[in-house]
Nucleic acid binder design. Structure first.
Lengths: 260, 260
DNA sequence: CTTGACATTCACCTTACGTCATCGTTTATG
DNA sequence: CATAAACGATGACGTAAGGTGAATGTCAAG
């Protein structure tokens, strides 16, 4: 492992390090015992002292741990002389993205299960486990493609395509109307009841395409402001609309959750 | 647990069930031993046989397991006579959404760490662990607010705000230009080299605000088409643009990944 | 009648710590 | 200065969720 940290800086006691990292002292004992994170200094009384470099290494360890690597694996990874922190951090980002996708599949499977339980569809037994293994998923997607051809279809797109052209235009116009109405309502402030009601309508309108949970809607709200593409489109309707939308969505979600 | 499944249907051997669910036979033994999933029938030779209802219950168990519930907790949850599958499925969706958020924070922490390691910023030690515990995160956000006031600020928004008004207008115009140029290029087809190059520029332009990975960009691509709000704004530029953008993004990402 | 696939139970092993217990050290306080 | 509280060390045992293997039973097919 290549770590260019001139460690001159501060040293931490075992408890300091543990509480900074949000872990127990015992864990650091354990990591010392198995040679995963050995303090560079031991005072005469055998007290452990950690330097700044251990901070980074511990972060690495906990990253990998979060990704369900075994401590043994982590050790070999970190001991690898070819090991480049930045490269591995980038790889970790990818792993996390994979995990996000997996969770998204799970959410999808849950939706299907709910649908099945409500008796509206007949789910085959194997579908129950679609969210699980990679191979099963690959296999499953193959069948889907065999059924629907090679187009990148999914339910919301199919639902959209099933609308008449008339209806599509209508929906688009509706969306734009909302943006305009929300823009007009900006001076009232994001916590104005009228604005809150507008947000509710906006949200309910979405449900047609997409099963948008409150949490999901909140995420979208942030994106309205933060993603440059969306931000730009909102800002052209009216300067400040992107940020206003974010605030209004967050506020609406908060109110809605308080109801429950 | 309320499960209205008239189990008349097929019965499965232990191995069949295990392989359907992608788990080991031993796990089913274990679940039987601790009374978590007991087969309804044992033939004379003590062989276990499972029915359709066990499929659903096992799915529930594995769902909760994925969410790091202990088997003990899972047992009490499923034994609760008040237990409503659909309600809990909805709760699980929420938990999964939380997990997604947590991962998003991790990705953010990784980005900061990379930034720090490249010597471009000075990260405080505690920031190393920002992705971890909830309390730490709450604490941390408090400090942020103390520093920046009560606005819901984040790096990309700060970055945006740090631009001059002139520059902001410029960026918005740029985004719109892209949309227009991409719309104009639609007849060429999403796999046209010119379109691919446009997508690259679009992507690179994003990097200014947001560290958009290829995977993330692909997700965004799907949203352009699937999220009604964004779909609507794209469709007003030109009908069919939303779907075209999705295809073009997916194609671009595929090409880009093939390069690696 | 044997072989191979599948089933059973019993029993010990593993990982990554938690949880004492027992003891030494340091520091704050009366 | 004495003493308690807080922190440190080591050692030993416990735990959850299975893995792994041994010894043995069952059954259909060749």
């Amino acid at each position: 492992m290549i770590l260019y940290m001139e460690s001159a800086q501060k040293t931490y006691s075992i408890k300091e390090l543990a509480s900074m990292a949000g872990i127990s002292v015992r864990i650091l004992h354990h990591y010392d015992a198995i040679g995963l994170l050995i303090p560079d200094r031991r005072s005469g009384n055998r007290y452990r002292f950690y330097g700044h470099s251990h901070l980074l290494k511990l972060q690495q360890i906990l990253f990998f741990r979060e990704l369900d690597f075994s401590l043994e694996q982590i050790k070999t990874i970190l001991e690898d002389p070819e090991f480049d922190v930045i490269q591995v951090l980038n790889e970790q980002k990818k792993l996390l993205a994979d995990r996000q996708k997996r969770i998204a599949r799970w959410i999808c499977t849950i939706d299907q299960t709910i649908h099945y339980l409500q008796g509206e569809g007949s789910m085959q037994d194997k579908d129950f486990y679609a969210g699980f293994s990679e191979e099963k998923q690959a296999e499953y997607e193959k069948e889907i493609r065999a059924m629907y051809g090679d187009e990148p279809l999914n339910t919301s797109v199919r639902r959209w395509n099933s609308l008449s052209k008339e209806r599509q235009k209508e929906m688009i116009a509706k969306g734009n109307q909302f943006h305009q109405r929300i823009a007009d309502a900006m001076p009232l402030g994001y916590d104005n009841p009228e604005v809150v009601d507008l947000m509710r309508q906006y949200w309910e309108n979405m449900q047609f395409f997409y099963d948008v949970s409150l949490d999901r809607f909140e995420q979208l709200g942030h994106m309205y402001n933060q993603d440059p593409a969306f931000r730009a489109t909102y800002e052209t309707v009216k300067p400040g609309l992107a940020e206003f939308m974010e605030q209004a969505v967050v506020h609406f979600v908060k109110l809605e959750k308080a109801k429950e």
